[in-house]
Write a protein that binds this DNA or RNA. Structure first.
Length: 286
DNA sequence: GACAATGTTACAGT
DNA sequence: CACTGTAACATTGT
């Protein structure tokens, strides 16, 4: 599913083809049959009509990723905010070959920007560009794991201070660190030998150097692979990524731990309602 | 027809 | 108050 590397890949792909284009028309059936009729989201028909008026004839100025959100900045001080959630895919010019498309922007070059979403969990909202910091989710996002200003010290301050919380939950908390989801949190903890239920304030300080390194290395490696397509992820051009071929623990329940000289069998447990995959042999519970 | 999938949030609990 | 855990919700394929 789209986490930081997948959203990054989508945004970089779209940058190449939609910047400078004008949005000529917008179509959506997201609100059809939706129970979300009062939401601040285009699943609410009234909100969609307002959204359509604002974006029509606006020019796409730039694109940006914040956490797992795609921001499309327009030239009228408005920014479209798209969160793909589990099965969303934002793609360029593929509106005819997919029955899960629920949002279409017609662009000035006769091409299309489309949002495909089998589960229809995606959210699409709009905000004034200079008021993004007030947006309900964007405004609360923690620092980005790949931000040049982010370092081990900051990671320690943020995560170690979440007293009592399991490390798995802390990594998934978008207000703490923005962009890590279930796949990458499992992989980071496997790599660093930390049990997902370890309390953040019990993990030794020096371990955070390892966590920081693993976090950046794994995310960067996945970006190089074009993201993870174990689930439904496709990039802006409908292509799969290949990080799923390098999973060490995610989705590997019952299999032998791939760490050298480790004989553990991968287990799965539920933390904060989410599945956590780990090796009970080499991942230590602090 | 129950269940699973995951990010987010409302709410209950410590 | 500050913080965490839990349940529920969005929806549909299996």
């Amino acid at each position: 599913m789209p986490e930081l590397p997948e959203v990054h890949t989508t945004v970089e792909g779209l940058k190449r083809v939609i910047i400078g284009k004008t949005i000529k028309a917008v179509w959506s059936d997201f609100y059809v049959g939706s129970t979300y009729s009062n939401g601040e989201n285009i699943k609410n028909k009234k909100y969609f009509e307002k959204f359509r008026k604002i974006v029509r004839n606006a020019k796409i100025k730039s694109l940006e990723r914040r956490g797992k959100n795609i921001l499309i900045h327009l030239n009228n001080n408005q920014t479209i905010i798209i969160h793909m959630k589990m099965t969303g895919n934002l793609m360029f010019g593929r509106h005819l070959d997919n029955k899960y498309i629920h949002l279409i922007f017609s662009l000035s070059n006769k091409k299309y920007l489309v949002l495909s979403d089998m589960r229809k969990f995606a959210s699409v909202t709009i905000s004034k560009t200079n008021e993004l910091h007030l947006h309900s989710t964007i405004g609360k996002l923690g620092p980005d794991p790949l931000d040049a200003k982010f370092d081990t010290k900051k990671l320690f301050e943020i995560v170690h201070n979440k007293k009592g919380a399991p490390i798995k939950s802390a990594l998934l908390d978008q207000t703490a660190i923005a962009g890590i989801g279930n796949i990458y949190s499992d992989e980071i903890l496997w790599q660093t030998g930390i049990h997902p239920l370890s309390k953040t304030d019990k993990i030794p300080g020096k371990k955070f150097t390892e966590i920081f390194k693993a976090m950046q290395q794994i995310l960067r490696f996945s970006i190089k692979q074009g993201g993870d397509s174990k689930s439904d992820y496709r990039n802006a051009f409908g292509e799969k990524g290949s990080f799923q071929n390098f999973h060490k623990v995610y989705g590997k329940k019952g299999q032998k731990c791939p760490k050298k000289n480790c004989s553990g069998i991968i287990e799965r447990l539920v933390v904060r309602g989410r599945s956590a995959h780990f090796c009970p042999q080499h991942q230590i519970k602090y």
